[in-house]
């Protein structure tokens, strides 16, 4: 029987929405900020773990992240909730990667693993917020990508059928495996780590793969492999004043009418 390997791609992000930017370097101020797993990625991990529990055709689960050495912590956390093994993609040369270079690095790692039947991403990260790494990785691997998945309806060794949330409603999509998906938080409720999982994680050695191991040149990764770079990060100035009108529709219309009258709009 052909078995499917599930690879879950996760990222470590600052555990706060109160982000401070260094105005000189345009980078995040990381001092004193606790790092956590990107919240959407914890749903991706749970889906990977529960897929293996639900479906006997899933042979194993691997968590993958690209980041500095301290990102190994979220890979250990992944093992503590039931992921079989983890790999850290880490190299000083990876620094400053945009989504293009990140997807290139991740896809090289997936090839190195020997491919995956299913790749799972969180729908986007808390810090970058682009939601691009999943689809770009799928493109590089030449496999289909389905975003915003809220349910895996069924999966056999050849196909996967999912429900996904779009702006106008839900869609049910079926595609051939191998494939990549990104998940939203409706898909499951992430479990708490188990004691045996935590003990396994504390003993686990996380392999570190660098650019030469992945067969990537310095021009292909990190800042030099990126087409975009962050020139400036700033908090936009409020250009408009926003006012919320409350009450019944009639009351709101009345309030709006009074407000507009008060403004004496001449146009």
């Amino acid at each position: 029987m052909v078995k499917i390997k599930v690879v879950v791609c996760i990222k470590q992000v600052p555990g706060t929405t109160d982000i401070k930017i260094d105005p000189k370097t345009n980078t995040l101020v990381r001092e004193g900020v606790e790092n956590i797993i990107n919240p959407f990625d914890s749903y991706a991990l749970e889906e990977g773990v529960s897929l293996k529990e639900r479906m006997e055709q899933v042979s194993g689960t691997i968590a993958l992240t690209m980041g500095p050495p301290q990102a190994a912590q979220i890979l250990k956390d992944a093992i503590s909730v039931g992921i079989d093994s983890s790999i850290l993609l880490s190299d000083p040369e990876f620094a400053g990667a945009d989504t293009w270079a990140t997807a290139k690095t991740i896809s090289a790692a997936v090839k190195k693993i020997g491919g995956a039947g299913l790749l799972i991403f969180g729908k986007q990260t808390l810090d970058g917020d682009t939601g691009q790494v999943g689809p770009e990785t799928a493109q590089r691997l030449n496999i289909p990508f389905i975003g915003y998945v809220s349910q895996i309806i069924e999966m056999d060794k050849k196909k996967i059928r999912v429900k996904r949330l779009m702006e106008h409603g839900y869609e049910t999509i079926e595609t051939n495996l191998p494939a990549a998906i990104s998940v939203i938080k409706d898909i499951n409720q992430p479990r708490v780590p188990s004691l045996r999982g935590k003990m396994k994680a504390s003993k686990a050695e996380i392999p570190v793969w660098d650019s030469s191991f992945l067969g990537l040149g310095p021009k292909e990764v990190g800042l030099s492999g990126s087409f975009t770079q962050v020139v400036k990060v700033f908090t936009p100035k409020a250009s408009h004043e926003v006012m919320m009108l409350e009450g019944s529709t009639e009351q709101q219309v009345e309030k709006l009418y009074e407000k507009l009258k008060g403004l004496k709009a001449g146009v």
Partner: peptide
């Protein structure tokens, strides 16, 4: 969730799937 986290295993000897 408590069961899945192995907390009932604390009571039980290792020979019977405890900790």
């Amino acid at each position: 969730e408590i069961g899945g986290s192995d907390l009932f295993r604390l009571f039980i000897p290792e020979d019977y799937e405890g900790m």
